[in-house]
Structures are given as structure tokens and as C-alpha cells.
Computed example of a mutant assay.
Amino acid sequence: MCDHTPTYLPENAPDADAARAVAACHQQGWSLLCNGVLLFEDTGELLPDGRTVEPHRPTSSLYAAA
């Protein structure tokens, strides 16, 4: 999908979220990555083949009150 070096990370790579953003709408909270993944600010994803990835934010905080 893109011609930059290094080449893009396939959508099934463990670090696929590190691919380069080629379009974004920050008001709506999404970025289109060069590997075709639509990444949402809640960390959910829509993959190029239509599959979805549930948000995977950390569920605990280092700063939570004890």
C-alpha cells in the first residue's frame, strides 16, 4: 500500500500498530495506517479484511489510588 522504507508492517504482525499513518481524523478518533489497518484512539482496530480487534488498553493504572 505504500512505498516508504522500511516497508510497512503486515496487519498480522505483533507491532502492526507501529505502521505509518497515511490519513487521520483526530476529531473522530481514527487513523488509517499504511498497512490498511484503521486504528481507533481507544486502541480498537478494523483490519483490511473486515475483521475487528477489540480495544486493548491496559486495564490498570500505575497511579490508581491504593
Rank of each mutant, 00 (worst) to 15 (best):
L46F: 04
T5A: 12
A23T: 02
F40Y: 09
A13R: 02
T59M: 12
D3Y: 08
H4Q: 14
E54A: 10
C34K: 02
L9F: 12
T7P: 02
P10C: 08
A24I: 01
Q27H: 13
A21E: 06
G50D: 06
Q28S: 11
S61V: 03
H56T: 09
A13F: 02
A19F: 02
E11K: 11
A13E: 05
L62H: 04
G29Q: 07
F40C: 04
A65W: 13
R20L: 06
D15N: 14
V22T: 00
L33H: 01
P55H: 07
T5N: 13
D17R: 12
A23E: 06
H56K: 13
P58R: 15
D3V: 07
C25I: 04
L62M: 09
L62E: 12
H4E: 15
L39S: 07
A64V: 05
T43Q: 07
D15Y: 04
T43E: 09
A65G: 07
G50F: 01
H56F: 12
P6C: 15
P48D: 06
P55V: 10
A13N: 04
L47H: 01
A65M: 11
D49T: 11
S60E: 10
A23S: 11
G50R: 08
R51Q: 14
L47Y: 00
E11M: 09
W30V: 00
A18I: 04
A64D: 06
E11L: 10
D42G: 02
F40H: 11
T7K: 15
Q28Y: 08
R20T: 12
T59N: 12
P10L: 12
W30P: 00
C25L: 10
R51H: 12
L32G: 02
